[in-house]
């Protein structure tokens, strides 16, 4: 009854149950924090240039270059269960072949509350290409600033921080920079 085995058994059982309950409670607690971020995003210019495809040197491929301004306050997303935020700028459009595309061309990882106020005016970080190689006859693109909240324990949550009010057309491709 009071053997060392029984004691170890009891202690470890209590310990594991407590930890599990605690972790569940922490995971559930993140549903209480519902404050959303505020911000605005504007795309200042979109240019399309024709270039060489990356892995196929003799194939032509169009690249879009997007300049944008972001101001966003993501501090409401930081609570005690927030490990980091993954903030990304996404373009959404349908190309001439009817393929619906979602492309991320800029992202940032925010790890501290002090860095959660974002003011960026920049250009795309990743190459913005079209699967069919040409942006011609694509629908105008919607640009959205989204975030992914990654907790210490619990579910990943996704959301939208800001959006460009009107879809923006892709211009015709240019061969060289003037």
């Amino acid at each position: 009854m009071h053997s060392i085995y029984a004691r170890i058994n009891n202690v470890s059982a209590t310990l594991s149950t407590t930890i599990m309950v605690l972790l569940t409670a922490i995971a559930l607690s993140s549903f209480i924090f519902t404050g959303g971020p505020t911000g605005s995003v504007e795309v200042t210019s979109v240019k399309v240039f024709s270039g060489e495809a990356r892995r196929y040197p003799h194939r032509r491929q169009e690249y879009a270059f997007v300049n944008f301004n972001i101001t966003a306050d993501l501090t409401p997303l930081f609570n005690w269960n927030t490990k980091q935020l993954f903030v990304y700028l996404e373009a959404e459009y349908t190309n001439a072949k009817g393929v619906r595309n979602e492309v991320v061309f800029w992202d940032r990882i925010v790890r501290r509350k002090e860095d959660a106020v974002i003011a960026v005016s920049g250009k795309n970080k990743y190459p913005f290409r079209e699967v069919s190689a040409k942006f011609k006859n694509s629908t105008p693109a919607n640009y959205t600033l989204k975030y992914n909240l990654m907790p210490f324990v619990g579910m990943l949550t996704y959301g939208e921080a800001a959006r460009v009010t009107e879809p923006i057309d892709f211009p015709l491709a240019r061969e060289r920079v003037e």
Binding site: K97, G98, V99, R100, N101, E102, V103, V104, Y126, V131
Partner: peptide
């Protein structure tokens, strides 16, 4: 995932 292309 950075890009999705829904081919019809």
């Amino acid at each position: 995932v950075l890009e999705t292309h829904d081919v019809v």
